[in-house]
Every structure is written in structure tokens, then in C-alpha cells.
Amino acid sequence: MNEMFRDKIDISLTVNGEPVEGRVPAGQHLVDFLRGALGLTGAHASCEHGVCGACTIKVNGEAVRGCLMLAAQADGADIWTVEGLSDQGTIKDLQDAFVARNALQCGFCTPGMLVAIDELLGKEGVPSRAEIREHLSGNYCRCTGYEAIVDAVETVARARAQKGAA
């Protein structure tokens, strides 16, 4: 149409602490870029209309729907996925709690769930079960019935609070 608009966009960003460059189609969402171009298959594309939460990733410190952000918009961003968070060890207690409580079955929702929970646990205080449920209300899990996930979050929130208080 005209020179202002590009159908391929060059982006340069940081993913899981590593510098990354790419040339992305204008309409490509961020999760397809992470999965396809970078091989970071931890975040999943499921509904691709922002409802299921399987694609939740961390962008500039906040939990974001990876399917509702264009890769082109991620130029300059600092992005973390479950792979990076795992390597970094910052959610190890949460991952351990998920395994111990069997807060996952098929595991497809889990990476997005963990990123969403990470944001909640970053806030002050120990959330109530109702607050945990409310915070996770945008992350669909067909397998667990949610209770085990709520239990795992509650366990970690309490443990962290105790550790902080000690």
C-alpha cells in the first residue's frame, strides 16, 4: 500500500534473558513467533482468541496473552516463558508444589497457568482461595477441576510468606 506499512517487520528483543532477532509477518502473534521461530514450545496456542490462557507469557514483567499480542509489538520487549522461568529457578517451589499435589494432568494448560500464578504470587500477602480462583479465572484446565491447582498455589503462597517473615 505504502511505505509506512510493512508486511514483514524486523524485531529485536530479549527472550528468557537472551537477545533475539527476527523478521515476522505483520499478523503473526507472539506465541507463534516464540514457538515457531525460537522453538520455545512451552507456551501453547489453543483458542487463539484470548479466552483459554494456554499462551500466557511474561512480557515486561506482566502476564500477557501471547495470542493477543503481535510479534511485531514485541520489539524491544523483555519476554519470559516457562522455559526461561524454569532455568532461572524462580518458580521452582511452585513447580514442585504442582508435581507434589498433582496439580496438572495433561499439562497443556500448565505453562500458562504457572505464568499467571507467578504474577499473583508476586503480590503482597497470602491470597485467599477465592482470590486464587478469581485470578486463575482466565486459565482453562479441563483435567484437574482446578482444586489441586488452588491447593498448590495456596501452599506456595503460605510457604513464601513464612519464609519472608522468618
Binding site: 516457562v82 513447580q95 504442582f98 496438572l104
Partner: peptide, 12 residues
């Protein structure tokens, strides 16, 4: 297999 899945290392 749970440990793998919580680290995003599942293979779908």
C-alpha cells in the same frame, strides 16, 4: 512425567 510438563518440556 509431571516434572517434564511443569517445565514446558512436554512434546505435543
Amino acid at each position: 512425567n509431571a516434572r517434564r510438563l511443569v517445565q514446558g518440556r512436554g512434546v505435543y
